[in-house]
Amino acid sequence: MKALAGAMDGGVAMADGSAPLLGDAEFRFLRDFVREHCGISLGDHKRQLVQGRLARRLRALRLRHFGAYCDLLRQDPQSELGDLASAISTNVTAFFREAHHYDLLAEELLPRWLQQKRRSGDRLRIWSAGCATGEEPYALAMVLAEALERHDATGVDAKILATDLSPQALETARNGVYPLERLAGISDGRRRRWMLRGSGEYEGLACVHPRLRELVAVQPLNLLHEWPMRGPFDAIFCRNVVIYFDQPTKQRLFRRYAGLLPAGGHLFLGHSESLHGVNDDFELIGRTVYRKRG
């Protein structure tokens, strides 16, 4: 009983070798740390989830208890921040998820933007903020590459910035290699055009076309920290990211997005996200599509 009580209060490893328990003090520290460094709000109901997911990090780091993990975060927070954020958040992504956003780009926004850029000589920039494993920016790149060809605008300086906090997700995004079953959202025509199917030891995998790699720059970024880029961006995709953030963090983030978008610039959110009661810099113009007010 004494060993069990110690495990519950101090987050120590269990004597029988089972998974360590997350103590009260360790959970409070982790909750405060995650809110400060990641903007993610963890309620008490998330305690079991945090314990289960971070137990894998303890095994990977060969740490016996949560107290040691908290000490690691205190001593060197940046080294573990990406892995911690990956562990406690659920990155659900897919090629052409919420297809209406891509349709709006292809049919209305990109033709207009490219015509303007050709006349002015300005560059075209799209930011995929919280790109996870890369399906979103590469889907954007397919639409952009097709628009550049269709509208005779291959000379326009057009790029997509893809950022995320998770080192594992960024590695996948940089590699651009996906199991065939992950390509379900891509039409047959686009799959033939933009995905290179592997063979031999790469059987069952597909790699993105080199042209898409040319259009996408994958970089690590914590949305709560300083941003090296200054914009402006024509569009920012931040979909299914702010669902984890508390209200003050959302408000700060959307103000910063507004600062990187010109009047008329577009912000795309996830299907369960909204700016209602959060920010007045944007007006809703479509399903989870916002335009910066002039």
Rank of each mutant, 00 (worst) to 15 (best):
2 K>E: 09
3 A>T: 08
6 G>N: 05
6 G>L: 03
9 D>G: 02
14 M>F: 05
15 A>V: 12
16 D>V: 07
18 S>T: 14
18 S>L: 05
19 A>W: 01
19 A>D: 04
21 L>T: 03
21 L>M: 10
22 L>D: 01
23 G>E: 00
26 E>F: 01
26 E>G: 03
27 F>H: 11
28 R>H: 12
35 R>M: 11
36 E>H: 14
40 I>R: 07
43 G>C: 10
43 G>W: 02
43 G>R: 14
43 G>K: 11
52 G>I: 02
53 R>K: 11
54 L>I: 01
58 L>G: 06
63 L>E: 00
73 L>I: 06
77 P>C: 04
79 S>W: 08
79 S>M: 08
80 E>C: 11
82 G>M: 13
86 S>K: 11
86 S>N: 14
87 A>M: 05
88 I>V: 06
89 S>Y: 13
89 S>I: 01
90 T>K: 11
97 R>Y: 07
98 E>S: 08
98 E>F: 12
101 H>R: 15
102 Y>N: 07
103 D>Q: 15
109 L>S: 08
111 P>D: 08
112 R>M: 07
112 R>N: 04
114 L>E: 02
115 Q>P: 00
116 Q>Y: 07
118 R>A: 09
120 S>K: 11
121 G>F: 09
125 R>L: 03
130 G>I: 04
131 C>H: 13
131 C>P: 10
131 C>L: 09
133 T>N: 13
137 P>I: 02
139 A>H: 09
140 L>C: 04
143 V>I: 14
143 V>F: 15
144 L>Q: 13
146 E>Q: 15
147 A>E: 04
149 E>W: 12
149 E>M: 13
151 H>S: 05
155 G>D: 13
158 A>H: 10
162 A>Q: 10
164 D>P: 06
167 P>A: 06
171 E>F: 01
172 T>F: 01
175 N>E: 10
177 V>C: 03
178 Y>K: 10
181 E>V: 09
183 L>T: 05
184 A>W: 03
185 G>F: 08
185 G>C: 05
188 D>P: 12
191 R>I: 00
192 R>D: 06
193 R>F: 08
193 R>S: 08
194 W>N: 03
196 L>I: 14
196 L>H: 13
200 G>E: 04
202 Y>R: 15
206 A>N: 12
206 A>L: 11
207 C>L: 13
215 L>H: 11
215 L>T: 06
218 V>G: 04
219 Q>I: 10
221 L>W: 09
227 W>I: 04
233 F>A: 00
234 D>E: 14
234 D>V: 05
238 C>Q: 07
244 Y>L: 09
247 Q>F: 09
248 P>A: 06
249 T>Q: 05
250 K>W: 02
251 Q>D: 00
255 R>E: 06
256 R>C: 01
257 Y>V: 08
262 P>K: 12
264 G>R: 13
264 G>Y: 14
265 G>C: 02
266 H>M: 12
266 H>Y: 14
271 H>R: 14
274 S>W: 09
276 H>K: 13
277 G>E: 03
278 V>T: 11
279 N>M: 03
281 D>S: 12
282 F>Q: 02
285 I>A: 02
286 G>F: 06
288 T>G: 00
289 V>P: 01
290 Y>M: 06
291 R>M: 11
294 G>R: 15
294 G>D: 13
